[in-house]
Amino acid sequence: MTPSYNFAFLDEDTKRMLRRALLKAVAIPGYQVPFGSREMPLPYGWGTGGIQVTAALLGPDDVLKVIDQGADDTTNAVNIRRFFARVAGVATTEHTADATLIQTRHRIPETSLREDQILVFQVPEPEPLRTLEPREAETRTLHALADYGLMHVKLYEDIAQYGHIATSYDYPVLVDGRFLTSPSPIPKFDNPKMDHSPALMLFGAGREKRLYAIPPYTRVESLAFEDHPFEIQRWEHRCELCGSGESYLDEVVVDDRGTRMFVCSDTDFCGQRRAEAQA
């Protein structure tokens, strides 16, 4: 642990500011709370929102897991885990089941989460309407009026053009029937895991200075139409390492003739399954 910095890097005033904002976020599910995001020692866009949320939560009894793309060993996940081991001296793990806090980028673990766990998402763009309306002053008003016609029109135009909704990740959700919310750029495969999750889910967007929350056991609906229900990705393949047919798969190019193989994106899930198969 680096002694010249406060526990978990942030000063106590900043933690209090984050904690107040997090409590309001939980009280208003899916609503983006503006907060005084600080410059962190990692670049904006690299998980500063998630890092600030984690820093506000973290205590000496926590066991922290950090994943990027579902994997514990991607360089940015390693770097963030290393950062907290250095500035907070907390225990870290790669096992989903052993973690009290999980910070993630782009995935929700395959292993079901429990009530005593908290999932922290790194969010690049918290505003689900941003690509349809870049002006913050406008999107605030649309949320105030719960006017999500823009998004429905966009999805409907997809159907008219392609025959189905052409959004494969960062697929917008309606939280508790009120706020249209970005699930962060997780693949839509993970969206159903958010609905009535036993674990609290917190979202931090550092560069955009917004945070939001989805409390446990909260209705989270992926937008859809009656004649075009929401569907998740399916593969014709199984994981070539553990044989799973239910997990999200990464496609890997294994030789210069372009041969592909498919493996689990969640490295802990895959590893556990292989260990069980061997036992």
């Binding site: 526990f7 933690k15 904690r19 997090l22 205590g59 000496p60 009530e115 609290l200 409390p215």
Partner: peptide
Amino acid sequence: VFDSQRTFRELLQAMAR
């Protein structure tokens, strides 16, 4: 530092449940 962290975690769980 640690007393307020532990208290906050209970408040967060209280608000979430």
